[in-house]
Design a protein around this nucleic acid. Sequence first.
DNA 1: GTATGTATAGCACGAACGTTCGTACGGTAC
DNA 2: GTACCGTACGAACGTTCGTGCTATACATAC
Lengths: 189, 189
Amino acid sequence: MPTVANTPSTRDAILVRAVDLASTEGLEGLTIGRLAGELGMSKSGLFAHFGSKQELQLATVDAATRRFVAEVIEPAQDAPEGAARLRRYCEGYVAHLERGSFPGGCFWAAAAAEFDDRPGPVRDAIRGGVEAWLAELAQQARVADLPDPDQVAFELWATGLAANAYRRLLRDDGAFERARRAIADRLDG
Amino acid sequence: MPTVANTPSTRDAILVRAVDLASTEGLEGLTIGRLAGELGMSKSGLFAHFGSKQELQLATVDAATRRFVAEVIEPAQDAPEGAARLRRYCEGYVAHLERGSFPGGCFWAAAAAEFDDRPGPVRDAIRGGVEAWLAELAQQARVADLPDPDQVAFELWATGLAANAYRRLLRDDGAFERARRAIADRLDG
DNA sequence: GTATGTATAGCACGAACGTTCGTACGGTAC
DNA sequence: GTACCGTACGAACGTTCGTGCTATACATAC
């Protein structure tokens, strides 16, 4: 066996659909039967790829992480560390909301609200992803010599949560402009 | 018929428990069987009070509104309109998170994330509650002569969402102090 | 050509879901 | 006294859930 690459095909296709579904319906509303139906396969066939619902949820969180990294984190890596990269992170985050990279808006906001009171591996995975994002924001704020980098990360994430909520619940597209202004005020003012 | 008061008893007791449950498990995770079990009554007996799950959810949102008004809105009414009342709203909101008025944290943050992509009367009710809160924040900002009152409301709500998420998902009690600082920066700075 | 292994499907299960039904008790109206 | 209404119960409905077990299709290896 070459062992070079992992399975290229079905499992990845399942996870693409699973992330989309979970971002709108939630990780619990993501049911195996529905996922299988939308992909034109049987429940048991899909189930065999993961072995349990929890494993499917964990794989979905993992796939969402990879998508978020590809859409928000990586494009900012060519900016120099510090203020410039922090700005790129913020703009990349708002832009990924605006273009609908996840059909249900911010995957992390939805997953966090759903699992914040349900202890277990899924919650731990979500928490890990959010903490990594916050740590990265704080790290760039630190390099940029901003006072209290953790407070900066808190307020930037707050802005993201509100932008997502305005867009999803209130259907207010002005949310993105409001978010950009709040970010600019925080980083420039 | 006296028509003075409405039913005093069972229905209200159901809704107290329903709001608590929904704030942790979500409005969908709030199941009739579980609610009945926790209250020591039968599913059908409880069901008869509402007629459908959706009516139970709507009544729960309504009860949560009343609790929020009693815990956050009303205590601020003796402050003069404008900057003073706005500050009281913010402090009241953070304090109600801190003291755990809803066992699952901010009811609206949880409900908004859960229903923001599910059209229907429940979503409309949640949206109405959030919009009323935002409108009240903006109104006090307007009386206080703050520039762009809607932007102020956006940023204050953002702070509340982040405080709730830090506390619930990250289990970080420092969230409240961070929120107070963000609010002070926004209203004083 | 046969064996092995992986991916998928078929089928059935126990549990939980929202909902409906028939019934029974306690008041209030007439 | 009799009819009615609100409230509550237990049982069952059909559906969907996650999860097993077994079988089939189809590669690749020997």
